[in-house]
Design a protein around this nucleic acid. Structure first.
Length: 234
DNA sequence: CAGTTGCACCCCTTTACCTCA
DNA sequence: CCTGAGGTAAAGGGGTGCAAC
């Protein structure tokens, strides 16, 4: 599935779930029960009287007049986001009064939102701007939130993969250590055998060659009584 | 054509908040 | 009820690619 297809499927899902979302409270009743203080940060902060769910999208999309095709918005600091920040949303310190109203609260994405994001991530772990906007609209989140979620998700994936790789290398290391111990033991045994007076007696004109893969010692006729370098070095 | 600038995007690290044992 | 640990949304900084000038 290429980007365009994903885009189409996302758009379709947007339409589908828009219908569902519109009939559902954005903060689940369960969440509110669990945390009565919870503010519904999943909703776009819209000026009070007439909440228009899609109004932010319009502003966001037009926010970057310079953007050429690939970069409608998101990324580091779009003008819309800067405005958002300066308007009091973001990191900078502000008065207590302001804080009470506009401080970014740590939101918890609803299970439904997380599930949809996960599904999208499974399809594609990066989003183009259009997909991001569509997904944001579908989830009733800001595009920047979707983008951040994908960034964090990629980071989590990478961390997990690193852990798996680390575990694999650890096992390799253990196996090699064990193999090393085994070879050391074998070496000692062979040295002891070499010191034994009967070592050369039974097979005077024969040398011992060990196959490194099957670890079998094979006796073979040899013209020279002295083993070559390729043969076992004791 | 090379250099500069602005923008968008990504990754990484850190911070701040939330949840749970 | 308090607290520390773990999870995670979000911020901030640095690097890179691209288009316009």
């Amino acid at each position: 599935m290429d980007g365009e297809d994903l885009q189409l499927s996302l758009s379709l899902r947007t339409i589908e779930t828009d219908l569902q979302i519109s009939t559902q409270p954005s903060t689940s009743a369960v969440e509110m029960r669990m945390n009565p203080r919870a503010i519904d940060m999943n909703r776009i902060p819209t000026p009070t009287p007439t909440p228009t769910p899609s109004s932010f999208d319009v502003e966001d999309v037009v926010s970057s007049p310079n953007s050429s095709g690939g970069g409608l918005l998101a990324g580091k600091r779009t003008s819309a986001e800067r405005e958002e920040k300066e308007g009091g949303g973001g990191g900078g310190r502000m008065s207590d009064e302001e804080e009470g109203e506009t401080t970014r609260k740590k939101l918890r994405l609803s299970k439904e939102q997380s599930a949809i994001l996960e599904d999208s991530f499974k399809e594609q772990n990066t989003l183009n701007p259009k997909q991001k906007i569509a997904l944001a609209k579908q989830l009733n989140l800001r595009p920047r939130q979707v983008e951040v979620w994908f960034q964090n998700r990629r980071a989590r994936t990478k961390l997990k993969q690193t852990e798996v790789d680390c575990e694999f290398l650890k096992r390799c290391c253990e196996n090699l250590t064990e193999e090393n111990r085994r070879l050391q033991r074998e070496l000692l045994e062979l040295r002891a055998l070499k010191r034994s007076p009967h070592f050369y007696m039974p097979v005077p004109a024969t040398t011992l060659t060990m196959c490194p893969s099957c670890e079998r010692v094979e006796a073979s006729e040899n013209q020279t009584p002295i083993p070559s370098r390729q043969q076992i070095r004791l």
